[in-house]
Design a protein around this nucleic acid. Structure first.
Length: 886
RNA sequence: AGGGGUGUAGCUCAGUUGGUUAGAGCGCUACGUUGACAUCGUAGAGGUCCCCAGUUCGAAUCUGGGCACUCCUACCA
């Protein structure tokens, strides 16, 4: 029989095969009728336009690790996948493709354009979800949803109508972030701030009834002057107090505008006088409200100047108008100076053009009231954040919440279900499209042209996929979910709003915990971004290193919150780990080959020390991993797993049993060793399955069934190890640790003397009687592991001539190394060791002799410290004696 | 300007509620292996836990101040 495993792990082949196997088994599908306790995660839906990036990689691996862990623990685990229709992003994609046909969306018309968007999604929208599958995401793919699905759209419609009828939705004239290129309002979150070098221009407005007096104002946007309705000055500014009650004349127009006093103005900035343009600046808007100033909107939708400006400026683009204004000011001798000025400008995230604050009619959701339960559930601890400090950010935003502008002047999205009546001023809404005005009955009604902000469908994500407003079984079972895993950048945009909406519709908090994953940066600490081109493509790394390696590296690097610096070479670490596991399994198989019958169970009462130690380590690690995962300390769980597999299992256990497996004392003994190793390995595969699902499934399938363990069809539904059901040998484990320390001590002496590894040496161990039995039973292990010819041990041992000495916890060991001994080197070594221990002893001594310490420190700490001191002192004594004898 | 975070080995970072001789991976050094391991193992070098002060019997950990970096929010007429 040959080894069933290839010399090398072929991740590509295995991933494909195992994925198909899982899909056929349908193990990721959760039954809504199951009696098992549900455990739900709702996936933050990626944009349909998205392609998998490392942020998705990290975010989804985190979710997958949790859901797989819970599934193996026997929960009715359901991870809901889906995509978001991404209003602006999709519309832009489709417009781009129209552009190549020489078409615009307006030429195409609304309906046709909408149809194109639908087609686009059908053709390209599946990409991201297939990429998530390649990563191994064990979502309930049969439940996959899309925010434009009929079911979800109905939920959008329902909640809009409900909010409208409850009086939360209103139409208002507000300043919005206007994207002149896309011709739509944007939310604050769709606006980027970019620092730019610009200018600030100073010029003069003449004061009325005076030939000589002017106020000097400063602005970065001279073209907005036609919308000015006041000039503002700080009330305490001595320079201008005499201007109280006066008006100034707006150049190029006949308009007189008042001088108002408001402490919003900073006297030290510019000239201390500010032109006020309420219709085109948020601060001015607020100030205008305080002083009852009129609003003059001077711009068209494309940011060209409209008919309210003097004729020569009409129709000019804002930047053209700026030039002309400056030119004319100079001609009229009103221009003072131009200064260089660095300021941050709002740029549209999508179209990259300068945002223009613009007065327009938009639909809003009044948030002040809705927010209350969302604040309360976090305050009360019903909803927890990981890391906790993000609560502060959350509170700050909710406590200062602004009403939410939900209308977008786009065609792709959920159209606002509002109908205007041409015969009366009222509007009509409803779950179904109305045919007549609900107030006057007129049939002349037209629907609002706008669509809803994409986030208006996103905030329904905890309930809409399950059929809300219907009271479905799914909704009952899978809402609320357990944990939301997402990035902290959308804490307001999405997280807070879902909490708000779930309380509004269902009166419940939509999840128990929110885990905020880290932001991925390059080695220089810069965020991965398309423009910088510094990202790492997860699909490329999956192709070269395998999905498991990608998953391992992502999670091992990523602590809670914060940032993680990632370099392509980090993924080598992941592959190495996978390869190590693969090879350990190959090693087991090479010995299992000779086994001609089924694996027998091992006898608990006949276990030797190293086996008990290994089983105890399995117990402790299992407990620790479960504990770490419970507290969302994923990187900690990953590290525990790594250390157990690599250090404990491979470096110690496989090494200690290697010789015996090759030359077993009996067939039974070999079977026993293999039984233990396979048992532990099987458990290891279970522990690792949530993190490394592919390679573990492959190896687990290849192993013989251990009689002590369940053997379902697939590892993904095998029971996750539970420490309570595992053997533990605390005492024996400590004993074996003593042996390990002794072995390390001997190895260290050998190495320092330069004794070739193949050469056998003797070792003389001086240790208390209590350890003798232990050494006696471990004599062969120690001999093998330290390559000894003889091991001597006794309570009193005289130092052999020409030997090196080492001291450890509870023992002193001498290794004669006559031909390698360098007295000077040994002296130096012992002296430095002596110095080091003296320092420790000194520290411990001062502690113990400190009355306050003895009185106030907890008893166990005192005992521990005393023991330590005793031990260190005896080590020191041994070293000193040896030094003097040299 | 306000808020959050970070500062631990050459690099990337762990270090849970104050008590270990402060850890890991990569890199580095020496030796060994190439019969589980395009390797792996063994042994090692390397730290003022940013600085200052305080609380405490005891501080990498808590408090205050400073320095440096970073993210978020707002504003910049």
């Amino acid at each position: 029989m040959t080894n069933p495993l290839n010399p090398r792990y072929d991740h590509k082949e295995v991933e494909q095969r195992q994925w198909t196997f899982w899909e056929q088994g349908s193990w990721f599908h959760a039954d809504e009728n199951s009696r098992k306790e549900p455990y739900t995660i709702i996936m933050p839906p990626p944009n349909v336009t998205a392609r998998l990036h490392m942020g998705h990689g990290l975010n989804n691996t985190l979710q997958d690790m949790l859901i797989r862990w819970k599934r193996m623990q026997g929960y009715n685990a359901m991870w809901l996948p889906g995509t978001d229709h991404a209003g602006i992003a999709t519309q832009m994609m489709v417009e781009k493709s129209l552009e190549s046909e020489g078409l615009t969306r307006k030429e195409l018309g609304r309906e046709e354009f909408f149809a194109r968007c639908v087609t686009w999604k059908e053709e390209n929208g599946g990409l991201i979800t297939s990429q998530l599958r390649r990563l191994g995401c064990s979502c309930d793919w049969e439940r996959e949803v899309y925010t434009m699905d009929e079911k979800l759209s109905r939920a959008v419609r329902s909640v809009f109508v409900k909010l409208f009828r409850d009086g939360y939705i209103y139409r208002g004239e507000r300043l919005v972030n206007w994207d002149p290129k896309l011709g739509t309002a944007l939310s604050d979150d769709e606006v980027e701030s970019i620092e730019t070098k610009g200018s600030i221009w100073h010029f003069k407005y003449p004061v009325e009834n005076s030939q000589t007096e002017f106020v000097e104002i400063a602005t970065t946007r001279p073209e907005t002057m036609f919308g000015d309705t006041a000039v503002a000055i700080h009330p305490e500014d001595e320079r201008y107090k005499h201007l109280k009650g006066k008006q100034v004349i707006l150049p190029f127009t006949e308009r007189r505008i008042p001088i108002v006093f408001d402490d919003y103005v900073k006297p030290e900035f510019g000239s201390g006088c500010v032109k006020i343009t309420p219709a085109h600046d948020p601060n001015d808007f607020a100030l205008g409200k305080r002083h009852n100033l009129p609003l003059i909107n001077i711009m068209n939708e494309d940011a060209s100047l409209n008919e309210l400006v003097p004729e020569e400026f009409r129709g000019l683009d804002r930047f053209e108008a700026r030039k002309l204004v400056l030119k004319k000011l100079k001609e009229q001798d009103l221009f003072v100076e131009e200064k260089k000025h660095i300021h941050t400008q709002p740029i549209s995230e999508r179209s990259k053009v300068l945002i223009e604050p613009r007065l327009s009619k938009q639909w809003f959701v009044g948030m002040k009231e809705l927010v209350k339960p969302a604040l309360e559930c976090v305050r009360s601890g019903e909803l927890s954040f990981y890391p906790e400090n993000l609560k502060k950010t959350y509170f700050h935003w909710l406590e200062n919440i602004q009403d939410w502008c939900i209308s977008r002047q786009l065609w792709w999205g959920h159209r606002i279900p509002i109908w205007y009546c041409s015969d009366c001023p009222e509007v009509t809404t409803g779950e179904e499209d109305p045919t007549q005005c609900s107030h006057c009955g007129s049939k002349k009604i037209t629907q609002d042209e706008d669509v809803l902000d994409t986030w208006f469908s996103s905030w329904l994500w905890p309930i809409s996929p399950f059929g809300w407003p219907e009271e479905t079984k799914d909704l009952e079972k899978f809402f609320p979910s357990q944990v939301l895993i997402t990035g902290s950048e959308i804490i307001f945009l999405w997280v807070a709003r879902m909490v708000i909406l779930s309380h509004y519709t269902k009166g419940k908090t939509p999840f128990k915990d929110v885990y905020f994953n880290s932001v991925i940066c390059d080695k220089l600490g810069r965020k991965f971004s398309k423009t910088l081109g510094n990202g790492i493509d997860p699909l490329e790394v999956i192709a070269t290193h395998g999905a498991d390696a990608v998953r391992y590296t992502c999670l091992s690097l990523a602590p809670l919150g914060g940032r993680v610096k990632m370099d392509p070479s980090d993924f080598d670490h992941g592959s190495r780990f996978v390869t190590k596991i693969w090879n350990a399994a190959r090693f087991l198989h090479s010995h299992l080959e000779s086994l001609d019958e089924n694996l027998k169970d091992f006898d608990d009462s006949k276990l030797d020390l190293p086996s008990k130690w290994l089983l105890n380590e399995l117990h402790d690690t299992t407990k620790a991993i479960n504990d770490s995962l419970t507290h969302y300390r994923m990187n900690e769980a990953v590290e525990l797993l790594y250390n157990f597999i690599w250090k404990t299992f491979c470096d110690w256990s496989l090494e200690t049993t290697k010789d015996e497996l090759t030359n077993p004392s009996s067939k039974e003994r070999k079977e026993e060793i293999l039984s233990i190793l396979v048992y532990v390995f099987d458990n290891m595969m279970r522990l690792a399955s949530p993190l490394l699902p592919f390679v573990t499934e492959e190896l687990w399938q290849s192993l013989p069934h251990h009689p002590r363990l369940d053997r379902p069809e697939s590892l993904v539904i095998a029971a996750f190890p539970d420490a309570k059901k595992l053997l533990s040998f605390k005492k024996e484990s400590l004993e074996w640790t003593f042996v390990q320390k002794l072995v390390s001590g001997i190895r260290s002496l050998r190495s320092q003397a330069g004794v070739p590894p193949k050469e056998k040496v003797q070792a003389f161990v001086k240790t208390g009687k209590e350890n003798h039995k232990l050494l006696q039973t471990s004599i062969s292990s120690i001999t093998k592991l330290s390559n000894l010819s003889h091991l001597h041990f006794a309570e009193e041992v005289e130092r052999p001539k020409k030997s090196l000495m080492g001291a450890g916890l509870g023992f002193t060991v001498y290794v004669p190394v006559s031909q390698y001994l360098d007295f000077e080197k040994e002296k130096l070594r012992l002296e430095s060791e002596k110095k080091r221990i003296e320092q420790i002893v000194k520290g411990l001594h001062s502690k113990v002799s400190n009355k306050d310490f003895m009185a106030r420190a907890p008893e166990e700490v005192v005992i521990q410290t005393k023991e330590q001191l005793e031990n260190m002192e005896s080590q020191l004594k041994e070293i000193s004696e040896n030094l003097s004898s040299l």
